[in-house]
Amino acid sequence: MSVWLRSAGLWTSVLFVALLWFLLELQGVGAGEAARELWNGAFGSPRAWLATLRAFSPLCLCALSVTLAFRAGLWNIGAEGQLVLGALAGIATGLATNRVWLALLGGAIAGTLWAFIPAILKTYRGVPEVLCTIMMNFLALELLRALLAGSLQESSGQFLQSDPLPAAARLPEWSLTRSGGIHAGVLLTVVLAPLLFVLLWRTRVGLLIRGIAKSPATLRAQGFPVARLQVLTLSGAGALAGLAGAVEVTGVSHGLDTSIAQGAGYAAIAVALAARLHPLAVVPTALLFAGLASGTDSLQWIAEAPGLDRFALVVQGLVVLFVLAYLSWSGRRQRHG
């Protein structure tokens, strides 16, 4: 058995290569071309970078949100819902005040609120935050639908979307292609990561927060307000995810419709864990995940086969599994010398 395990890296590599090649042949695509497109579609051109960075922004912010919560021993599965609430508040505030920073603030506050409720329920009624945050995600989607058909609906009353944001309520952009640019939200994200690191490792509050994850009983015994800290942390996590939603509406879509919720909040959990919950590592990890998504999406362009978009999902799954296996194997090799 151990022989198998030790050579696991070898045969998983072979298996993966074989599987990918086989699937590519089925789709009528050459393997080398696919590999090139995978890279080009992620990082190979200004447009690719645009795609990757646009996917990176909400993913990274939500991953930071999940990281913060995890560091206090809490599972924030609700980043998706908090993002939606942040988008709702962002669009409402942006349309009402025509100021982008107010829209962002509104989004953060809405996200805080949406995380505050599960936090309170957890600390004072014992409702597991995993359950509560998942339910809040579904609730957020219902709220989105209702508001887009109701008070947030655009003025002609025909489409299930909001009015477009006026120029002063949009994030500034730096042009990358003829008609698109990366928005300031990306910068904001990258700045927030080291700030989070500083909070968690260089402040007293951060020390306490991290202590909760390790031994809440000890802290409680020493008289620290563990429950209050947890509520604070989860709410703060909600603020980050809510900010992600507000960034999306002010920076990318300049409006709101039902396509705002694409699973970034859930993917962020994987990103946070892959980055071992280090805020600084979250940034490159989120970038890689975003690159993987845009690279695999790009595969659709190389051939006429209609199944390439499903194939993109398969490749995403396989690549992550392969990297995980590789890491495990290399770690094992390291130990065996």
Binding site: L5, L23, R310, L313, V314, G317, L324, S328
Partner: peptide, 23 residues
């Protein structure tokens, strides 16, 4: 066996199945 992170592995498996069933 390989002690990879459960969430990340499960997430990858989810994508694999989603795309695989589609194909």
């Amino acid at each position: 066996w390989w002690r990879s992170d459960q969430i990340v592995s499960g997430w990858a498996l989810h994508f694999l199945c989603l795309g695989g069933t589609g194909l």
